[in-house]
């Protein structure tokens, strides 16, 4: 459905915006390396089924997400390392890993490796933006491209919510995936504050600056 496709393309767009920002400005300043590593972990643990992915659509997106994330990490850790300031990127990711690990181990749909890792990736994704938002809060402002990146990334999961509602009514089984939906809503709530400032400032041509 349209929400799902818009969501996936928003996700893809966010990655292109981030790559464009890093290469255009020759700098990864303002980008949280910790969040990027968490996203890498999200993709690896969620796409363990990559070799068995039957849909070409999903297969292509999975490969694109994994490879582009690897490239972003390479750019941040090697090519543009001097522009990456670890002193601003101080969020304690062990809390996020503990949160996702605990929920994945306590409430997976099944106790199989794939299911536990899948649940872990869903919960981890829901909070993986926190180091980035924390860094934004410390610097108090962001370049326009960084703000566009975060907005597109947040929109992706927000668009999955109407997708789930649409699927609930349009598919005869009326399935609700409690893990994905709960985590998706949590993820979108975490962005809400950012969305508000993005909407009131950046979309009106102003700089992204915290009040």
């Amino acid at each position: 459905n349209i929400f799902r496709v818009l969501g996936d393309f928003s996700h893809l767009a966010s990655i292109f915006i981030l790559l464009h920002k890093i290469q255009q400005l020759k700098s990864c300043s303002g980008i949280s390396f910790k969040s990027q590593v968490l996203y890498m972990l999200v993709y690896i643990t969620r796409y363990l089924d990559l070799p068995w992915t039957s849909s070409p659509y999903n297969f292509i997106f999975k490969v694109l997400f994994i490879s582009s994330e690897l490239y972003i990490i390479y750019l941040m850790a090697r090519a543009y390392k001097p522009t990456n300031d670890p002193n601003l990127d101080t969020f304690h990711v062990e809390f996020l890993l503990g949160f996702a690990g605990l929920l994945a181990l306590l409430f997976p749909y099944k106790y199989t490796i794939l299911e536990v890792f899948w649940a872990f990736s869903i919960w981890l994704e829901s909070v993986a933006i926190l180091p980035q938002l924390f860094m934004l809060q410390r610097t108090g402002e962001a370049e326009a491209m960084t703000a566009h990146y975060i907005a597109a990334l947040g929109m992706y999961r927000a668009l999955y919510i109407p997708n789930w509602i649409y699927r609930y009514f349009s598919e005869p089984t009326h399935k609700v995936d409690t893990i994905a939906v709960t985590a998706g809503i949590l993820q979108t709530i975490l962005y809400s504050d950012f969305f508000w400032i993005y909407y009131t400032k950046v979309m009106r041509g102003e700089k992204f600056k915290l009040p």
Partner: peptide, 10 residues
């Protein structure tokens, strides 16, 4: 099977 529906998502 709750999970199958969403396993076809990204």
């Amino acid at each position: 099977e709750a999970t199958e529906a969403v396993k076809d998502e990204l």
